[in-house]
């Protein structure tokens, strides 16, 4: 019976709160990917913002990605005379992962590899998204790949990006800086910190914008869904613990003679409580394994959002603890059976 209750408790937690947590994660991921963690700095021409800012921002805590963008230059496809021009910018960064750029040139002068956004590739008429483009100053770039830019870089579209190392010398003037915070709650402090390391003498020449509103929505959604999940979890766990207590108490009453005998034969109260709790723990662990497996299979079959692994582990621990808590009162009741009352034959 205890196993069944724990199975039901675990399944219910995972199928309700777990599912809601999975959905919450999806919603939050969606909000986060829309740019709730970005800080964008736009600089006027001649503001003095240069590529060395990337290294300074990299050193700040809470930054997951930073890149600076040089001034825009028009490039066109060398294979098409009279084709469309597309904006080309130097991308100064040491972290290429989020952009999907193959490698970084050590300096702007030697930059020859570039990537194009899908719109840029289309406008340039690049077959298969690759080809050669030429700037007005006849500097040529080989576009080696088309990359779908993350949402926080969509404001640059359509663009050809020529990656350059943040350590490149001499430093180049940049017109935009994008930093991505590790979490939405870090956006505001990160924006303040970035403002202090921009290295420009006239701050009126730069505009710092953040996704603070989206970050706030992120926090509100997280808090509200979190509160709902917590309330649901408390109800499920409390009901299950109560049910475990009632069932075990019933079993203790049914087996009161057994506990009276144990007391008569020399079992201390603490030993009886310990044995009861150990037995409940054993049954709860079996129930947790079965319940989690059943619930996760059910979620997978119905293609419902799966809770994160940490949630599954936490709910398993919680279910086990709830069963143990529920068994404390029955265990104490078992340890207090009176041998004389239980064993004496009238």
């Amino acid at each position: 019976m205890t196993v069944l209750i724990v199975v039901a408790m675990c399944s219910t937690i995972l199928l309700t709160t777990g599912r809601a947590t999975g959905a919450e994660s999806q919603v939050l991921r969606s909000i986060t990917s829309a740019g709730s963690r970005t800080v964008v700095v736009r600089a006027n021409e001649g503001s003095g913002l240069d590529s060395t800012v990337v290294q300074r921002v990299e050193r700040l805590g809470g930054v997951s990605w930073v890149g600076a963008f040089g001034d825009s230059t028009d490039v066109s496809n060398t294979a098409l005379h009279g084709g469309s021009n597309v904006s080309e910018r130097a991308l100064v960064t040491d972290s290429l992962g989020p952009i999907g750029v193959p490698r970084v040139a050590p300096s702007l002068r030697r930059a020859s590899i570039a990537v194009a956004s899908p719109d840029a590739a289309h406008n340039l008429g690049l077959v298969d998204g690759v080809g050669r483009v030429e700037a007005a100053d006849q500097h040529r770039f080989t576009v080696v790949r088309t990359v779908v830019l993350p949402r926080y870089l969509h404001f640059l579209e359509p663009v050809v990006l020529a990656p350059v190392s943040a350590q490149s010398k001499p430093a180049i003037e940049v017109s935009a800086l994008v930093a991505v915070a590790r979490s939405p709650r870090l956006v505001a402090p990160l924006a303040a910190a970035i403002r202090s390391v921009l290295g420009v003498s006239d701050l009126t020449q730069v505009a710092v914008s953040t996704s603070e509103t989206i970050a706030r929505i992120h926090r509100i959604v997280k808090n509200q869904l979190g509160a709902f999940n917590a309330a649901l979890l408390i109800i499920v766990v409390a009901s299950s613990a109560t049910l475990v207590a009632v069932v075990l108490f019933g079993l203790v009453l049914l087996r009161r003679r057994h506990f009276g005998r144990r007391r008569a034969l020399g079992a201390t109260r603490s030993l009886i409580v310990g044995l009861q709790l150990a037995q409940t723990l054993e049954l709860a662990l079996v129930g947790v394994v079965i319940g989690s497996a059943v619930a996760l299979c059910a979620l997978a079959v119905t293609r419902s959002p799966l809770p994160p692994p940490s949630f599954v582990v936490a709910s398993s621990v919680l279910a086990t603890v709830a069963a143990l808590v529920g068994s404390i009162v029955p265990a104490i009741a078992a340890s207090r059976r009176d041998p004389l009352k239980e064993l004496r034959v009238p």
Partner: peptide
């Protein structure tokens, strides 16, 4: 104490009940 008496029962005493009282 109850605990000491339980230990004493376990170590020094043996009991036979009227109806055996087996598990």
């Amino acid at each position: 104490s109850d605990s000491t008496r339980a230990h004493r029962r376990a170590r020094q005493f043996g009991f036979v009940f009227q109806d055996a009282a087996l598990d």
